[in-house]
């Protein structure tokens, strides 16, 4: 096995496409090193992207934010302007693991690890975030929704990796929120995750919404019926009931050591409702 740590994106792309055998991108490493230790992954090459300065940046771009693939969760949490625009995305990233994990784990790594229970992914999907993928044939922008294809699998082509993630501009009276259910208060994998991003008009009527669920299907779910339940409403009880019902209906979970089908189905709606109310408050309240 070899370890390489290029200092530019071009070098990294070249190294990745010319590597013989299995090459894995090492960002925070909080999933990869655990999988290697357990014998689940046995790369021939580890390509550490943390020496690439460009991937360490959080940059304002067209009113939105571009977040480099090597930016840690802790760095995102310390970026006041980013937190102000996308509190739900940042809180989702900051829920991953402990303080120690936050010092290492990256949002791009969370995305590319492609766990159905990844905390940041529902929030990114609700935010309509776009991943910038680089590879031997140049770069392409891909909706985050389309990156994971199933548990542990992505749509990235050989030689490609995610270099950054773009969060679009945030309009007035817009906000997002993410909630997950875990049995403890920390240190667990989401049993269910729910993210809501919405915009209110001056009267408190929801004009736009995206609702996404985690850990209730092989990959993140964008629940359009749930968003429809909110749009045009004042986020009152009937709208929230319809949202919860749509989320529970969309959930197609499995039963495993972390939760039952019934539990995940039920709680998906509960969390979506609660996340909506948090986002509503953040967006400036009912009116």
């Amino acid at each position: 096995m070899q370890y390489i740590s290029p200092t530019t994106v071009d070098e990294a792309v070249h190294a990745l496409s010319s590597a013989t055998g299995a090459c894995r991108i090492l960002a925070g490493g909080t999933d990869l090193l655990v999988q290697m230790r357990a014998g689940m992954k046995r790369p021939d090459t580890l390509l550490d992207i943390k020496r690439i300065d460009a991937l360490h940046q959080i940059t304002a771009e067209d009113g939105g934010w571009r977040i480099g693939a090597a930016v840690s969760g802790a760095e995102m949490g310390e970026h006041a302007a980013l937190v102000s625009d996308w509190p739900g995305v940042v809180e989702a990233v900051n829920l991953i693991g402990s303080t120690q994990i936050q010092g290492r784990a990256t949002m791009a790594g969370n995305l590319c690890n492609a766990s159905p229970a990844a905390d940041s992914v529902p929030a990114l999907v609700a935010a309509n975030a776009v991943a910038r993928v680089v590879g031997p044939h140049g770069q392409r922008d891909v909706a985050v929704l389309d990156i994971p294809s199933g548990p542990g699998k992505t749509t990235l082509e050989p030689g490609e990796f995610v270099a950054s993630t773009y969060l679009p501009a945030r309009g007035a009276r817009s906000a997002d929120a993410y909630l997950r259910f875990i049995p403890r208060t920390e240190m667990d994998i989401a049993v269910v995750g729910a993210a809501v991003s919405l915009t209110l008009d001056a009267d408190g009527i929801c004009t736009a919404a995206r609702v996404a669920l985690g850990a209730v299907a092989p990959k993140v779910l964008l629940v359009e019926a749930a968003a429809r339940a909110l749009i045009g409403s004042r986020l009152d009880a009937p709208a929230l009931d319809a949202l919860a019902e749509a989320c529970s209906a969309a959930a197609k979970p499995i039963a495993d050591k972390r939760g039952t089908v019934e539990f995940r189905t039920q709680v998906a709606g509960v969390l979506a409702r609660r996340a909506t109310l948090i986002a509503q408050t953040r967006a400036g309240g009912p009116a």
């Binding site: 090492l26 490493g29 994990i101 010092g103």
Partner: peptide, 29 residues
């Protein structure tokens, strides 16, 4: 634990709290 779940190996790396079991030795360069 060797998997970042217990914190017994906590160290500071460039002023950031991390689990030493989730950092490669090579990364300390």
């Amino acid at each position: 634990c060797g998997s970042g779940d217990c914190g017994a190996c906590s160290v500071m790396l460039d002023g950031r709290l991390v689990c030493a079991c989730l950092v490669l030795g090579a990364e300390a360069e």
